[in-house]
Design a protein around this nucleic acid. Structure first.
Length: 653
RNA sequence: GGCGAGGUAGCUCAGUUGGCUAGAGCACACGGUUCAUACCCGUGGUGUCGAGGGUUCGAAUCCCCCCUUCGCUACCA
């Protein structure tokens, strides 16, 4: 019988920087599910990758002085390196800059356009000119640009829109008919109440304000916006073809069984993505799980605090499997989890070193000490054995129940409960006492056999979560990997096998003080604190502009001007129109300063003017330059002028 | 503001449709044990189950109100 296919994906990671432990959690979680499904007999395909387009990347690349492609090549490489470091078993790492992906995204966009689900319209919003960005009302901070804090003005831009509302009722029905579609369930309510029930707005799916993206093939000044580009990776990665003739991978694995994503992007995956698929006549994925986040106990992770935890730092200190154990075990199903170095060390010492490591070690040691390493089933059973045997066999069922509900943390706990049960069994049977008693040798052998067999069962079940440790334990016990079908009976361990003579310590206990010391060494410069001058804090800019050269600065021409006349601009709230004399010419300049200066204030003032600024119309009035002002934290303005009297027309440099 | 989730032992959390003296893990204390990584096993809680009111023979669990924390609130990749 052919194996049942199982397709699982993570969200593709945005390549704007190095992923921290929170991002890494998702890939490890997905990996544990993928490995588990493989173990229980599914034909698994596990896809992950990177989302590499967008304005933010364009800007970051510019800041670094590299091309966007060079920039994402480096970041994507870093992300892949960490995924590999975490020992994740993905089958496909897709990048949205892959050629086949880009081509198919264009075809998908084109098809939706010709079908009439995408139409050309105008995007209206609040626009911040210096930032070249649109914002919605709700994004504005105090009615101003959330990035630079400056005034924004209503503006329009040509854009393509997706008719979401057309599919809204179908989606509501689908979600209601498939209660498991959105997990955890509380998220389902958020989507229904906030978006679906009030009615969907059409979605803007193209941009002209930046270039780093996939161009619309029939209208190349537009770039396809993130939704259609990024989300479609789940099908393009399988070789989906919108024109028919999809790859056989697609036929086999689509629809996906599980999209694993962070709770922050649930809306895109549970609303936009299903609607896109409906429009393409493609079946919907079976389940979408928005997992919670792993947070620092001492406040949020931030680079300026110097407390960002990166996966590779953790791996250096604790090893891959300890980190995997920690993130999987500590993460609850619905609420955010907590991460700290202290908790990490505590878990490692008590669970990994004491319970598991010590169990394996003492078992192997006793086998060596009493029987020269030979583990033999002499079948001298006693009543206590049965409880252990049943517990060991039952663990498989309990793990399975937890995994079917995606309760990965619970599944791991079940496995460790088995290890604890083994430790208890040792105390119940007291092998060291049997060793001293005459005629108890066969009973002793049986006890050790039961222990080894139980550990093999536990180690086998542990593989999806801690693959390396699982392998190490089986190697110490000299046991092959056990198949899922051989998990239903107790006694699969081959009697007469010799265990290792030199048991390696699986997890060494760590001292929290020493760990914290090492952590400090690894982060030697936790961001030099900028000195704050007492009583005069000044103003900190939210965003610093990239460095420029003297040549860049030379492009700007600044001259002294004298305001000879000034009036209010009709139909505007903030604008004044000044006539400014600069040498032999008089320029008309419009400025947003009415809230602070009256036209009378302005007349006679010497001002600094940008004279080679491209003329622009503000509220219908042409402005041939710009008067420079300083702005304080409250947005109060002060005109820049010269320290001593200088004739108008003088150049500033 | 609207919608939603939570507030249970020092810490992290379980507590199904209301019902035996409210639980687990960690930490802590004591006892046991010595095969083992100072480990393992056992024992130990006067917790106002956020506050108040109500329904009921009986409520952490249902209803009302209040306090408090957090999530979501559309074009951000």
């Amino acid at each position: 019988m052919a194996k049942k296919p199982y397709y699982i994906t993570t969200a593709i990671a945005y390549t704007s920087g190095k992923p921290h432990i929170g991002n890494t959690y998702e890939i490890v979680l997905a990996d544990s599910i993928a490995r588990y499904k493989r173990f229980v007999g599914f034909d698994v395909r596990f896809q992950t990758g990177t989302d590499e387009h967008g304005q933010k990347i364009e800007l970051k690349a510019q800041e670094k002085g590299v091309t966007p492609k060079e920039f994402v090549d480096e970041t994507a490489g870093e992300i892949k390196r960490i995924w590999d470091l975490m020992n994740t078993s993905y089958d496909k790492f897709i990048r949205t800059t892959d050629e086949d992906h880009e081509k198919m995204v264009q075809k998908i966009f084109s098809k939706l356009y010709h079908k009439g689900d995408i139409y050309k319209g105008e995007y209206e919003g609040m626009y911040c000119t210096p930032c070249e960005s649109f914002f919605t009302e709700s994004q504005l901070v105090d009615g101003k640009c959330p990035d630079c804090g400056r005034e924004v003005s209503p503006a329009k831009e040509e854009a393509y829109f997706f008719k979401m509302s057309k599919y809204q009722d179908r989606l509501i029905k689908y979600i209601e008919d498939n209660p498991k579609f959105i997990q955890p369930e509380s998220r389902k309510n958020e989507m229904m109440n906030n978006f679906l029930k009030p009615g969907l707005q059409d979605l803007c799916v193209s941009r002209t304000s930046f270039k780093w993206g996939i161009p619309v093939d029939f209208d190349p000044k537009h770039v396809i916006y993130v939704w259609i580009d990024a989300l479609s990776n789940y099908i393009t990665g399988l070789g989906y073809d919108v024109g028919g003739g999809s790859d056989k991978l697609y036929d086999k694995y689509w629809p996906a069984d599980l999209h694993l994503i962070g709770k922050d992007i649930l809306r895109f995956h549970t609303i936009y993505w299903p609607i896109m698929l409906m429009a393409l006549d493609v079946p919907l994925p079976k389940q979408i799980f928005g997992h919670p986040w792993l947070l620092q106990s001492d406040g949020k992770m931030s680079k300026s605090k110097g407390n960002v935890i990166y996966a590779d730092d953790m791996v250096k200190l604790f090893g891959v499997d300890a980190v995997r154990y920690f993130v999987l075990h500590e993460m609850p199903f619905e609420n955010d989890g907590v991460i700290s170095w202290e908790l990490m060390v505590e878990r490692l010492n008590s669970d990994l070193a004491n319970t598991l490591g010590n169990l394996v070690n003492r078992t192997v040691s006793m086998s060596n000490k009493y029987f020269g390493g030979i583990v033999e089933n002499k079948k001298v059973a006693e009543e206590v054995d049965q409880e252990l045997i049943e517990y060991a066999l039952d663990t498989r069922i309990r793990v399975s129940t937890a995994m079917d509900r995606l309760r990965v943390a619970d599944a791991i706990t079940e496995i460790f409960n088995l290890f604890k049960r083994c430790n208890k069994y040792i105390d119940e049977t007291m092998p060291w006492a049997l060793a001293k008693e005459e005629g108890k040798q066969d009973r002793l052998a049986t006890v050790l056999y039961n222990l080894v067999e139980s550990i093999v069962i536990g180690a086998t079940l542990l593989e999806p979560y801690m693959p390396e440790t699982s392998e190490k334990i089986l190697a110490q016990l000299n046991s092959p990997k056990r198949k899922v079908n051989d998990m239903v009976r107790f006694g699969g361990y081959k009697s007469g096998t010799k265990v290792t003579e030199t048991p390696e310590i699986l997890f060494a206990r760590l001292d929290i003080e020493e760990v914290l010391k090492k952590v400090e060494e690894m982060t030697p410069d936790p961001e030099p604190e900028v000195e704050v001058v007492e009583g005069n804090p000044g103003i900190d800019l939210a965003e610093k502009k990239p460095e420029i050269t003297i040549d860049d600065f030379d492009k700007v021409q600044l001259r002294v001007g004298e305001v000879i006349a000034c009036e209010e601009v009709k139909n505007s709230k903030k604008l004044l129109c000044s006539q400014v004399k600069i040498g032999s010419e008089v320029r008309q300049i419009v400025s947003g300063i009415k809230n602070f200066f009256s036209p009378e204030d302005m007349v006679g003032k010497k001002v600094v003017v940008v004279t080679n600024l491209k003329p622009a119309k503000l509220a219908g009035v042409e402005s041939q330059g710009m008067i420079l002002c300083a702005e304080d934290a409250e947005g109060k303005l002060s005109i820049v002028t010269t320290e001593t009297e200088v004739p108008h027309g003088a150049e500033i440099r």
